[in-house]
Structure formats: C-alpha cells, structure tokens
C-alpha cells in the first residue's frame, strides 16, 4: 500500500468511527444544551443499545458470521433492529430522566451529575451480571462485498453504517431546526424561563432531549457491534469519553458541532492508529480535550454570543 492508499483507507475507517462518535456525542450535547448537565449514564446507554441490537438480530436468526438473508428482507431486518434498539435505548434515557434526574431538578451543585455516574455503573453492572463478562460475537449480516479504490478497501457494511448515520443525523438536524418541538428545544436551551413563558412545557422538552439522545446512542451502540463484530459490557467508557471529547471539541450544546466533532475524533483515532500507534490514541484524544477546555472552551463552533443590550 502506498501512503495515499493508507491515508484513504484510514479516512474510510475514521469516517465509520466518526459516525459512531457523532451519534453518541449528540446525546451529550442535546442534554447539556438544555440542562447544562454532563450525562455520564449516556456511556452505558450506548453499551446497552449495542446489546439490544444484538438481541434483536438474534431474534431474526442472525447470529454467527454466515449470511442467511439478502436483499430486501435483510434491509427490513436491519431497519427493524435499528428501530427497536433506538426505541428501547430512548426509553431507558427517558426512565433515567424521570426516575433519577427530575427529582433533583432544583438541587443545586453536582448532585445530578454524580447521579448520572451512579446510573452508569448500575447499567454497567446489570449487563455484567446478566450477560457475563466475556465479549459477545456480533453477527455480520451484511454480504461481504468489497470495493477497491486504489489500494484501499471499502466494505458494503461500512457504506451501510454511513447511510444509517447520515440519515439519523440529517433527521435530527431537521427536527431541531424545523419542527415545532425542535424549535422549542432550541428556545429552551437558549432561555428556559422565556421559553416557558411562551407556553413551552419544559419538562416535555427535557424528556424529548433524553429520548432523542439515548436513541441515537443506541444506534451508535449497534453500529459499534456491526463495525467491530463484537460487543461487551466494557465498551461504554472508552467510546463514551471519546464522544464526550467530540462534543466538547464541536462546542458542547451545539448540534452540528457534535457531528463535526465526532467525525474529527474518528479520523484522529484512525490516523493515529495507522501513523503512530494504537496505544497513543487516547493520549492524543484526551490531550485535545484538555487543550480545547483550556484554550477554547466554547469549542470549534462556539455559540454566537448573545448581546445583552
């Protein structure tokens, strides 16, 4: 492989990882935008989503690596798996908000954030105790079709991941920009009290943010399984911290920023694994986190400053 081929190959890999981080980063950003809360339980909603997707695929008879379905039935099964995974993950997010965070809504200080860490460990241990500590094989239901671009290889599976991630991100973007509830979300993020006085029911908006963010994290968890061909109770922390870095890099609270930040983190991971060493990936990513927080805490796409005149 020439250098150009390597670069292209790692770009392909990086975009796949980036799509996953972006989906995960959106959940941090949606919730932070409205509640100014870093939701650490999000890490393990992603992990649970990965297992829900695995379970749904198994229900359709997809386990192992052999291809049992093709064409439209396969598309249908994958679609169903994504929909169920996102629904269940979204539901978990809503339950976390209702049961663990809403009672703390008016408590000042870090109580809510610490609670999310606790919830994260609860999810982590539930999965550890029920499915066990060993990593599980993820089915690879997509036919092994490879496209060669120069020396680089592009799998059909990767294209599928890109398509799913693109649809979800565009969907979210248009929801937030155009729909009535999406506008209420933005308004609440910018001035919750004023939004309330326009008639926005802020609790509903918060529920919506948790549902959407968690659903996207679930989709991200399934993409993790399809991409790496395994899942485990451990996957939440590393992916979650990297996605959190992506959200901060893009400007936490900023929806397009989280998407771009996610893609960038994915590309950085892929490039550093190729051109440096995998062991350095986290050093680089978390150095970026620290540098952004120190020198440009508003991120690459920091918000337009409101004028108070």
């Amino acid at each position: 492989m020439t250098f150009a081929d390597l670069l292209l190959q790692q770009t392909i890999n990086g975009l796949s990882l980036g799509a996953m981080y972006a989906l995960l980063a959106l959940g941090f950003t949606l919730v932070y935008g409205i509640l100014e809360l870093i939701n650490f339980s999000h890490f393990n909603v992603f992990m649970v989503g990965s297992f829900v997707g695995l379970w749904v695929l198994q229900q359709f008879g997809l386990s192992g690596q052999e291809i049992v379905l093709a064409g439209l039935p396969l598309v249908g099964v994958l679609l169903a798996a994504f929909v169920v995974t996102m629904g269940v993950s979204g539901g978990i997010g809503v339950a976390i908000e209702r049961l663990c965070l809403r009672p703390l809504r008016n408590v000042k200080g870090p109580a809510a954030m610490i609670t999310t860490i606790g919830v994260s460990y609860i999810l982590f241990n539930i999965v550890l105790l029920t499915v066990g500590a060993d990593s599980k094989n993820y089915p690879n239901p997509v036919p092994a079709i490879h496209y060669h671009i120069g020396g680089a290889v592009l799998d059909l599976r990767v294209i599928l991941i890109w398509i799913v991630a693109t649809i979800l991100m565009l969907g979210l973007y248009f929801f937030v920009q155009r729909s009535r509830l999406g506008k209420a979300m933005r308004a609440t993020a910018q001035d919750a009290e004023a939004a309330r006085m326009m008639g926005v029911e802020v609790d509903k908006v918060i529920i919506m943010a948790f549902f959407l963010g968690s659903a996207l994290a679930g989709a991200g968890g399934m993409i993790f399984g399809l991409y790496y061909n395994f899942t485990s109770f451990l996957i939440g922390f590393t992916a979650g911290l990297r996605a959190f870095t992506a959200a901060v890099l893009g400007g936490i609270g900023n929806v397009p920023g989280a998407m771009v930040g996610g893609i960038l983190i994915g590309l950085i991971e892929a490039m550093s694994a190729q051109f440096l060493a995998t062991a350095w990936t986290d050093v680089i990513i978390f150095s970026i986190l620290v540098l952004v927080l120190v020198f440009k805490p508003s991120g690459l796409f920091g918000r337009i400053a409101p004028t108070k005149s």
Partner: peptide, 25 residues
C-alpha cells in the same frame, strides 16, 4: 402573554423564529 424584562429574545434564533415561538401554542 409577557414582554419580558431585558427583552429575553432567543438570541441564536432568527427574528422570524422568535415570532413563531410567541405563537407556540
């Protein structure tokens, strides 16, 4: 309906979107 102290517009939304928010219900 309120006209709030210090305006309290939604600063990162357009003028039209602010008007839309007024008619939210």
């Amino acid at each position: 309906a309120p006209v709030l102290e210090a305006r309290r517009l939604f600063p990162r939304m357009t003028v039209f979107e602010n008007l839309e928010m007024g008619a939210y219900l």
